[in-house]
Design a protein around this nucleic acid. Structure first.
Lengths: 246, 246
DNA sequence: TATCAGGCCCCCCGTGGCGTCAGGGTCAAC
DNA sequence: GTTGACCCTGACGCCACGGGGGGCCTGATA
């Protein structure tokens, strides 16, 4: 009924997590409604990554503070995620180093890597969002034929320059709606406007903040500078837009 | 020297992952420079979460494609992270449900939770970014005194409405620079402008996209709708800004 | 030279959450 | 009576070691 294996029930019985309502003279385990409900609770917490021991503590102590346990577990999950993001960054750096060590195929590998990830990303988008997304992607790809590696590099350089400027402004304690941040935002938007007809590929440039959300290269950046820069930049973007657009 | 335990070396010897350069007549294991280098490689991949078996495959096959192995592992890590983010969301929903079941302390719990996380977030910001960040935070807090729960709720409602509209537009296949998306963006920016003097708290509202990057409630949203909505929204924001600002 | 501290060795059990045999009993239907 | 689908217990295996027991080896000191 619940999809757990017999062996699992044996195990839960053995460790005293879920005992049958009744054991027949033949040794058979019989479970009732209460046990089913308890099993569902067990499966819920197990799904969340609780250990069986923790689950027993949560379910057996009547006045146990479940919200505290959940929040505790939440923190553990967050730590886990941070650690894994850090590992992702290390892998990316290692891959980059490996590519530098093989200069003959450098660009090829880089391009292949990018194209592969781009394709995977687009496939996932269509999978999740349905065929309408394919139209958007096709539109974007239609204008992308003229793009070269140099364009891509220039784009990345511009982004890096703006981010570096923002980081400096943050470190210097300049206000997010001060002239420096505003100038950087203007530069960003003007760059977008100038290159508009070139149909900037969406995944490579969907606004600085979007990169932050959609691309995991951002995650590395985010891990490096923590939340500060992202918050500062978007504050600046928002204030800029609010002032300029009324 | 490398910080691994003797027991670990025994284990690696037993499974054939790292054998000593020489074993003395007394049975002692002696390791040389080559073994140290190999051990460092092992520790590197172990840190990344490779299993010892995978590490052996990576190191022992001379022509083995390490970049492929790394990319493979990268995908596993990404899946892991996605799964954990999903669990985070479930925990949050469960916590919310538990709070609804205890209506007497509902607001208190909610507020306490929020204040606690806000404080932790601010502390981390200052920790990472240095004392300048404290100034920004103090500025923001200074204007935050007038905020009530109702303001907060209205803010969330407005955000939810805009996001829902965007989701509809995406599903309907409307272009990101079409009139509907533009209208939503205008509404968003106008709302910012109208509430400007109220000094919107940065962590609660640092622009839609920033929420996506900085707050993990976004991560739940992002997981739910996948990348599509985020990309679509930011595309719309960028195009709107580019058109309006020339 | 005896002793002593501090290594080293091998062997074996334990962890968690079960999967997977092996060997045997039970039940309902035909 | 047979068949096939269940059930039971008991035991071993996984993975990456930690930890303990009992004994050997080495270098320094009394």
């Amino acid at each position: 009924m619940s999809g757990v294996s017999v062996r699992t029930l044996h195990h839960y019985d053995a460790i005293g997590l879920l005992k049958p309502a009744e054991v027949g003279t033949n040794g058979y385990r019989y479970y009732g409604r209460d046990e089913l409900l308890r099993l569902q609770q067990i499966l819920f917490y197990r799904e969340l990554g609780f250990s069986l021991d923790e689950i027993r503590r949560v379910l057996d102590a009547p006045g146990f503070d479940r919200t505290a346990a959940l929040r505790d577990h939440r923190r553990k999950l967050e730590t886990d995620i941070r650690r894994r993001r850090c590992l992702l960054r290390t892998i990316d750096e290692t891959l980059a180093a490996l590519e530098r060590d093989a200069p003959m195929e450098e660009t090829a590998m880089y391009k292949g890597f990018d194209a592969e990830r781009q394709a995977a990303y687009e496939r996932e988008l269509v999978d999740r969002q349905g065929p309408q997304m394919q139209d958007h992607i096709d539109q974007a790809r239609a204008g992308r034929a003229g793009w070269r590696q140099a364009d891509h590099d220039a784009l990345q350089a511009e982004q890096a320059a703006i981010e570096a400027g923002m980081a400096r402004a943050l470190v210097d304690g300049l206000p997010a709606d001060g002239p420096e941040a505003t100038a950087l935002m203007r530069r960003h938007h003007q760059w977008v406007a100038r290159n508009w007809n070139r149909e900037v590929p969406a995944t490579a440039f969907a606004g600085l903040a979007a990169m932050y959300a959609a691309d995991d290269r951002f995650q590395a950046h985010y891990d490096a500078r923590r939340a500060g820069l992202a918050e500062y930049m978007t504050l600046a973007m928002t204030r800029f837009a609010a002032r300029e657009l009324g």
